[in-house]
Design a protein around this nucleic acid. Structure first.
Lengths: 223, 223
DNA sequence: ACTGAACCGAACCGTATAGTTCAGTTCAGG
DNA sequence: CCTGAACTGAACTATACGGTTCGGTTCAGT
């Protein structure tokens, strides 16, 4: 009898064990695919079928469709931002060739986020924000906020080292993001994707514009 | 008997007359409010109630919820973009003080689009794009595409007149948009709105960055 | 003042979906 | 190898929504 004991059963505890771990993983992978393909409107029956799992099992593990979606958001963002986050941004901070490393960081940043999958997920979340505010909060926290913090840290370090001069860091971060990334987010939301050529011109042109404004003479070694 | 005559009744013709015009207007105004507040998920019953109109009347006028929403999108964008479109952009083309007029154009542009209502509508459309692609197309066509065309025309004219030098117009338009407008669209999608101070720094900083890159000596008269 | 278009409201239809229940089956750890 | 936790599938509840139908009422143009 499971409903015994006493009252306070908050989260009824997800199943444990080897089999449960496999099922859980299968559900998460299927949900990743299905949510990206169909949006949050995808039915729970479909999610369960795609995972090769019964609906009951799905509910035993995640409790609700919303919870499952939250997990998927977190995983997707970690995957999309992991590369540029620690790898590139931290390397940028101690760079000796700011232009080259800033270009690399921005390329990685854009290629991680400006994919049809991530853009579609972003739109789904934006559209569902009114009904499920928690989704938007998770996205914001594990996405833009984290990324901007990392970028601000790296740029601040470059300022300290005299390679850049940035009087208004909040503004500078938004500007860099606006120059190299935002066009993808804003104009990729309507299905019309961007040519690779234009994407590249955005990164190069944006970085040059950024350095023309905030660079010091010391920013490029060979020049 | 209305279903008589012969076959080809495509759009069954909206009601006409004085009363019908009033009702139609009431429906559009209510739908504007409700869709902005509740998103496309708002029930037709609610829309009709808010308009002080029966559901049947609503369907007689617009045929479907989707059609009604399309009308609302068009009206909202015309209202949001009308000011900056013809008024400012055309004035910018023949400007003698590019910095001042570009600042004015951008301020008008941002203040028209970066309102909670327009941002919310944008999110709703983005989220519903999978189910109703026509909504996204209307938004894109009557919004960004039109606006970018006007901006490109004005900047092209300034190039002709020797006040700017813009080798890649497509890139330049995206950059200006990215600098002054995109941060609102991208980071306003999560409820966290932007301080007036930051919005102003974005416009001023963005225009200066833009002119530093594309301006010629002739761009500012007094200098 | 009359006539028909336009309107009302309430019931109705069909469909879709989140989440639950349950009786019976599979699996894994002790 | 055996016991109970975890899983299955299918039926079930409850709800919500888009759109239609219908009998009866209001209004506006002639």
């Amino acid at each position: 009898m499971r409903t015994a004991k006493s009252a306070p059963e908050g989260p009824p505890a997800a199943p444990s064990g080897a089999r449960a771990a496999r099922k859980r993983q299968a559900i998460l992978e299927a949900a990743h695919r299905v949510f990206l393909r169909e949006g949050f409107g995808a039915g729970v029956d479909l999610l369960a079928a795609e995972a090769g799992v019964s609906k009951v099992t799905l509910y035993n593990h995640f409790g609700s469709k919303e919870n499952l979606f939250k997990e998927v958001i977190g995983r997707t963002l970690d995957e999309a931002l992991g590369a540029s986050e620690s790898l590139i941004i931290d390397r940028l901070a101690e760079s000796d060739d700011v232009r080259a490393d800033l270009l690399a960081a921005c390329r990685s940043w854009v290629s991680g986020l400006a994919t049809p999958e991530v853009l579609a997920l972003r739109d789904v979340i934006a559209g569902e924000r009114r009904r499920f505010p928690a989704l938007g909060e998770i996205w914001q926290e594990r996405g833009p906020v984290r990324q901007h913090a990392a970028l601000a840290r790296a740029l601040g370090r470059l300022d300290e080292r005299g390679l850049l001069r940035i009087p208004d860091m909040e503004l500078a971060v938004l500007q860099l993001s606006g120059l190299v990334l935002s066009p993808h987010l804003v104009y990729g939301s309507y299905g019309a994707d961007m040519s690779a050529s234009l994407a590249d011109r955005l990164v190069e042109g944006g970085v040059d514009m950024f350095l023309a404004r905030y660079g010091t003479g010391a920013a490029v070694p060979g020049k």
